[in-house]
Design a protein around this nucleic acid. Structure first.
Lengths: 159, 159
DNA sequence: AATTTGATGGTCAAAGATGGTCAATTTTCT
DNA sequence: AGAAAATTGACCATCTTTGACCATCAAATT
């Protein structure tokens, strides 16, 4: 198994339903996994970004730490935030996929639904002779259309 | 015997009745057969396409892999029909939505999933300054991408 | 109070590990 | 011979891991 995946799992195991937050020591964790300390940063940078629904806070020097917070918000508010702040008029496939992953992790959509959404925004679909800016604009429109649909649904179910 | 046939056999032997899925390392396999790594891609591209009833998933970089999924006979037949006959290279929003409705009626997708799919192909998303032919081509690509993803989840088998 | 020191975490670029593409060449089939 | 299939290799793209060097903070020392 990949080191980075192992570290990701380790951290996510600490962030259970109750625990919205976890604090760790970079060097300790690196030692535990027998790797370079910067490997920890790599994992945080690729799997615990705001795009993924996490916020990082850290401090250097003696008694330093890294704290990871999982963002929690009301479902519909979150969706509105995602819609207006994050998608906007244009979005890359990577950003879009991160956003979908987040919806899945937050259990706003099922994993099957997430797979469908990713299929609809993945770069491969857009390999047609059109400018990249147009691709991202179209992707944004499609993603927003889907998000609206989900928001509409959750308004009538629960959450 | 041809190399490509040998590799094809090798992979198909791994995909027995029980095993619906196999994971391999491109370079390892190439080394085993003492051939160029790209030969593996050739075999996959010519003998393990959706048309042949397979779905491929891969990842690059350290710990990379290639996974091959075998679809049920029913699944691949229905998928082929949808992909080639119904969707094709271009599809209107009306046709697309009709197709999605049918998938839902046949309980191949849930109504939530159908709603997401419709949101992704609806005409509104595509109201940008691009030719109608491009819109329909893009819509076709997106719909196909989604259909492949659904086949991947083997949802066809129980309808 | 200012400085030094040790303990932390951060950055970034390079190296390593994979898989992907494409076009040229060779082999096989008709 | 000509067309189709197979094979290879050069070059590309992506993801991971590491290490050298930098920045910051708190406590000890001057």
């Amino acid at each position: 198994m990949r080191l980075s995946d192992a570290i990701e799992q380790f951290i996510k195991t600490m962030l259970t339903q109750d625990e919205q937050e976890v604090e760790l020591k970079r060097n300790e964790l690196a030692q535990y996994f027998n790797c370079a300390p910067s490997q920890i940063n790599y994992v945080l940078a690729t799997r615990f970004t705001p795009d993924h629904g996490y916020i990082i806070e850290s401090r250097r020097g003696g008694g330093g730490y890294i704290r990871i917070f999982r963002m929690e918000q009301d479902t519909s508010e979150q969706l509105l935030y995602l819609l207006h702040e994050r998608v906007g008029e244009t979005i890359s496939s990577l950003e879009a996929e991160h956003l979908v992953s987040q919806l899945k992790e937050r259990e706003i959509v099922t994993s099957d639904e997430a797979a469908i959404m990713k299929a609809a925004v993945c770069e491969n679909c857009y390999t047609l002779p059109i400018p990249a800016t147009l691709k991202d604009a179209l992707r944004a429109r499609i993603l927003k259309s889907i998000l609206l649909e989900i928001a509409h649904k959750s308004k009538f179910s629960d959450a």
